[in-house]
Design a protein around this nucleic acid. Structure first.
Length: 605
RNA sequence: GGCCCCGUGGUGUAGCGGCCUAACACGCCACCCUGUCAAGGUGGAGACCGGCGGUUCGAAUCCGCUCGGGGUCGCCA
């Protein structure tokens, strides 16, 4: 950085090479050590810490006397000489620890109240308090690193995309509401009472229109908004790398993004192991093997289908589940045979919270193939018989000392339950290495899924996704079997992004809308602009969107998206710092033509 | 909407029916101390235990409701 007026150097940047120079620093008092005659101040700025020595004696400038009143987080400007410390006085724990500043003048730029919590990485502070005082929390080194990591990601992406002839295009934040998909955040219109803008869930339609507009290669680091319940990896507003390309097929998009992810990770986290090329799975395959479309692939723990082994057994729970269209599948916990009954019951309790009616356990203290009844501990040994139990153990590839857990239900429930158990087992056995970032692709998603009532079809990805060419013939006969030209990127158990090849022909798009239960009139009202655009020479195109908050989260090795967002919201979507959302004055509502159905509810702590 | 966990001085915890007019560490305040770097020494201030209502002779400790926070299932085209 160019020498400034208030400071010539950063505190954290001072090194032996600066010895002999007179410098002026400005920063915060990280710590003060008053020894009577001499006082040490660790002065902190964004770059780090440096020790300043102040000796306010008769020979010194009178300004140094102010050090007596200096407290933590005071903002100081200090001029002095950079000197090398004596060998005994060097501090190897500090990047600038070989040198220190001998202060000649001191200026208090601002005083500070004692902060509500310590500015330190190794302290565990209530998160609401951190958010209420986020401007103090951001001074912690971990937060500084996270913010800088975000910047690094953004910068890498902009360079990468620019080098490949992509143009960054901004799209509107106030758009038309889309009843499809997630709940919209709405903005009332003053000029059109009763009408609302929506904040975009993603720039999906606009980027497709950019393709029709001939842009060919678009990207944007775009803010997206979805009014749904929050999670550790979900915020109501989040940032996506949004991109769209014309004249491409799946392979173009996947290889472009794979190259980007590899380069991004290696340039920002050289120490991380990134297995390449990224493995690819079809949706059907990955669901069968892991029960999830975003499994953590740093460990195995694959699932096994045991339905055929128990179909004819006397155990009614299994038989019943299969007869009503379900299956019996299993996961193995290596070494789980030594768990007490109580510990095994914990798995059952966990499974029940995820919708399972129960969970069947089998503990093997011998290889399943030649286990006797004495080598098997299971509440259903008698119901299934030793032979079946042996067969289950063999099917699951269980070893002596392992625990097999079986869930019986429809696929949806079994997948949720076994995915949950798989994560829990991996967590207990500490199977996920923090040194690996294991990316993977998932392709061939189903095009449609039934809504909750099992009635009409919904688009699994979104209604502009093209069907696999080979499956187009099923449009009229068997929509459930149609696969979409959609793909996800996953990493370490998170969905990082998804995309698809889009429909670019009006006839096919209209046909899909019909299948989704959107009639001609509704199509015109809600999607007329898209259909019309497709009539004016829409090129084949496809794209992708990457959840950048999650990417930064993985690169920082944290498990919470709020740790990499400067001003995140709480689980109930509030901001303790600014008080959002807030009530508004009644004349503000009057202008918008809005009357509240009920008086606002004010909450106290 | 469901389930689980948490809520004690500024911060983090302990206490889990009477010994609590609440303990410990860090921080804070004052004084001492010229080389420390999580400085040190001496002394001191600071919470009525998220809120409300019950149970009990008696509650921070038990119960109910409620508010706030976190995790998760549903939800997230």
């Amino acid at each position: 950085m160019r020498d400034g007026v208030l400071k010539t150097h950063n505190c954290g940047d001072l090194r032996a090479q600066h010895v002999g120079q007179e410098v002026t620093l400005a920063g915060w008092v990280h710590r003060r050590r008053d020894h009577g005659g001499v006082t040490f101040i660790d002065l902190r700025d964004r770059a780090g810490l440096v020790q300043v020595v102040l000796r306010p004696d008769a020979a010194a400038d009178a300004s140094l006397e102010a050090v007596a009143g200096v407290r933590s987080e005071y903002v100081l400007r200090i001029t002095g000489a950079v000197v090398e410390r004596s060998d005994e006085a060097k501090n190897p724990n500090l990047a600038s620890g070989d040198v220190e500043l001998q202060a000649t003048t001191l200026e208090v730029l601002n005083e500070a109240k004692t902060p509500p919590f310590a500015i330190s990485d190794d302290i565990d502070v209530d998160e609401t308090l951190r958010l209420e005082y986020r401007y103090i929390d951001l001074r912690r080194p971990a937060m500084v690193r996270a913010i800088e990591m975000r910047h690094g990601v953004n910068q890498y992406i902009r360079n990468f995309m620019t080098e490949r002839a992509f143009s960054e295009v901004e799209t509107p934040i106030m758009v038309a509401a889309t009843p499809e998909g997630a709940r919209d955040y709405l903005v009332p219109s003053r000029l059109h009472h009763g009408s609302f803008y929506a904040l975009p869930q993603s720039p999906q339609q606009l980027k497709q229109l950019l393709m029709v507009g001939g842009l060919e290669r678009y990207f944007q680091i775009a803010r997206c908004f979805r009014d749904e319940d929050l999670r550790a990896d979900r915020q109501p507003e989040f940032t996506q790398l949004d991109l769209e390309v014309s004249f491409v097929e799946e392979e173009d998009i996947l290889s472009l993004l794979e190259e980007m992810f590899i380069g991004l990770t290696r340039s920002l986290r050289m120490d991380l192991n990134v297995p390449t090329p990224f493995p690819r799975f079809t949706y059907a395959d990955i669901m069968e093997r892991f029960g999830s479309d975003k499994p953590d692939l740093r460990y195995g723990l694959e699932l096994s289908d045991c339905s055929d082994l128990v179909r004819d057994s006397e155990f009614g729970v299994f038989r019943g589940a299969i007869e009503s269209g379900g299956r019996v599948r299993a996961i193995v916990m290596p070494g789980g045979a030594e768990l007490s009954r109580k510990r095994v019951e914990e798995f059952t309790a966990l499974a029940k919270t995820m919708g399972a009616k129960g969970l069947v356990s089998i503990q093997f203290t011998a290889p399943p193939a030649d286990a006797t009844e004495d080598d098997v501990r299971s509440p259903v040994l008698r119901h299934l018989g030793l032979e079946t139990v042996q067969a289950i153990g063999t099917r699951c590839d269980a070893k002596s000392g392992d625990l097999v857990l079986l869930a019986a239900d429809v696929d949806g429930v079994v997948n949720t339950v076994l995915d949950g158990l798989r994560r829990e087992i991996a967590s207990r056995l500490d199977l996920a290495s923090p040194d690996i970032l294991q990316y993977a692709w998932v392709t061939d998603f189903p095009m449609f899924e039934r809504d909750e009532q099992g009635g009409r079809w919904n688009a699994q990805h979104h209604p502009f996704t093209a069907p696999l060419r080979a499956d187009e013939s099923l449009l009229d006969s068997d929509p459930a079997r149609i696969r979409a030209r959609a793909y996800d990127c996953i990493a370490n158990g998170y969905e990082l992004g998804s995309g698809s090849i889009r429909i670019h022909q009006r006839a096919l798009q209209s046909r899909i809308f019909h299948l989704l239960g959107i009639g001609a009139e509704e199509q015109e009202a809600r999607f007329g602009h898209m259909l019309r655009a497709f009539e004016y020479g829409a090129p084949p195109h496809g794209g992708f969107a990457v959840g950048l908050d999650r990417v930064v989260m993985l690169l920082m090795g944290v498990e919470n998206i709020r740790e990499v967002i400067a001003f995140p919201k709480t689980q109930s979507a509030t901001d303790p710092l600014t008080g959002a959302p807030s009530t508004v004055a009644s004349d503000q509502l009057d202008e918008l033509g809005i009357r509240l159905a009920a008086p606002p509810v004010l909450h106290d702590m």
